[in-house]
């Protein structure tokens, strides 16, 4: 009934559209299409460059709308030959899986403890909120990791990326949303806290939890800073992002030389595509989750 009324009004609005409204509508659509094009174009350029002929690409100045020169898979063939890139991918996958796993455990435990009605809940929250206000910073953190003997250890990346205060509070929020009666019923039936946590509360809050996992995944897949600080000299532990950074920085100087090696130029595009495309292709499926996560987080980040 109500929806019927609404469409009627909307139809009425369409009938009364003036010429000015049509022009405004057209301009709005044109602007939005432009936003979409600008958002995609740089990555499209990379994608097309990666299929290009390396030699023609070097002398090409402009945005590659289509592969430059004869389309090839040469760039991707070069990746297969470069063992350091495989090391990078391996490390990134290791860091991502480790970070998500540790983060998941911590978020479930912390979120559950914070969502329960205990006398110490306020204290636990205060314990977390203090860290939001005061942070030691990069150097003191480095010193702590140094004295724990973790500098140069792969675990440090997992440790620093696993979770944040914000994720813990978010987990607690999503656990609190589970009806108390469900939890109490399970408790009366004799389920322990651990059992309630994993078998009752977590399945009901999994939608919200997935958002945290998604955020952790993106952050650790794209992360580079921790690795550049904690394992600067040990390339065998670098994630792929650091290899990309090194390669592209080297290429900047490299292209100024008289006879640049085009294959090194070409491979950088292929590497970026392999490191970025999975996320780009996966994200559209999670549009609602992304939006929900951002709304929960408010202005954060």
């Amino acid at each position: 009934m109500r929806t019927g009324k609404k469409t009627k009004v909307k139809e009425g609005m369409v009938e009364h559209l003036t010429v000015g409204n049509h022009i405004a509508n057209f301009l709005i659509h044109a602007c939005l299409i432009m936003v979409a094009v600008v958002s995609l174009l740089p990555m499209w350029h990379v994608l097309m460059s990666s299929f290009s002929d390396g030699f023609s690409l070097l002398s090409f100045k402009g945005v590659a709308v289509l592969p430059v020169g004869k389309p090839t898979l040469e760039g991707y063939r070069l990746i297969f030959r470069d063992s350091s890139l495989w090391i990078g991918y391996g490390n990134t996958i290791f860091y991502v899986i480790g970070t998500i796993s540790l983060g998941f455990v911590l978020n479930v435990l912390g979120g559950y403890a914070l969502s329960q009605d205990t006398k110490g809940r306020g204290l636990m929250y205060a314990f977390l909120f203090i860290t939001m206000l005061f942070s030691g910073g990069v150097i003191p953190t480095y010193m702590v990791m140094n004295s724990l003997g973790l500098v140069g250890n792969r675990f440090v990346i997992i440790l620093l990326g696993a979770t944040q205060t914000f994720y813990l509070v978010f987990a607690a929020k999503s656990f609190s949303a589970v009806p108390v009666s469900t939890v109490e019923a399970a408790r009366i039936d004799g389920a322990g806290h651990i059992r309630v946590m994993f078998q009752i509360v977590l399945p009901q809050a999994r939608g919200m939890f997935f958002i945290t996992v998604l955020n952790t995944f993106v952050a650790s897949w794209n992360g580079w800073y921790e690795a550049s600080v904690y394992m600067a000299s040990d390339k065998t532990k670098w994630p792929i992002q650091l290899f990309i950074n090194e390669m592209t920085n080297a290429n900047v100087n490299f292209l100024e030389t008289a006879t640049p090696n085009y294959s090194r130029y070409l491979i950088q595009f292929a590497v970026i595509v392999v490191a970025t495309l999975p996320i780009m292709l996966a994200m559209p499926f999670f549009q609602d989750k992304i939006e929900a996560g951002q709304l929960q987080g408010g202005v954060k980040g």
Binding site: V105, Y112, F127, F134, V144
Partner: peptide, 24 residues
């Protein structure tokens, strides 16, 4: 049990946030 469950999280936060605070 709820408090025990929080202990790993507390240790994590102490290592990554509270100990560095003394670095000032």
């Amino acid at each position: 049990t709820v408090y025990f469950v929080f202990i790993p999280v507390a240790i994590y936060i102490i290592i990554t946030h509270y100990l560095p605070m003394f670095g000032v």
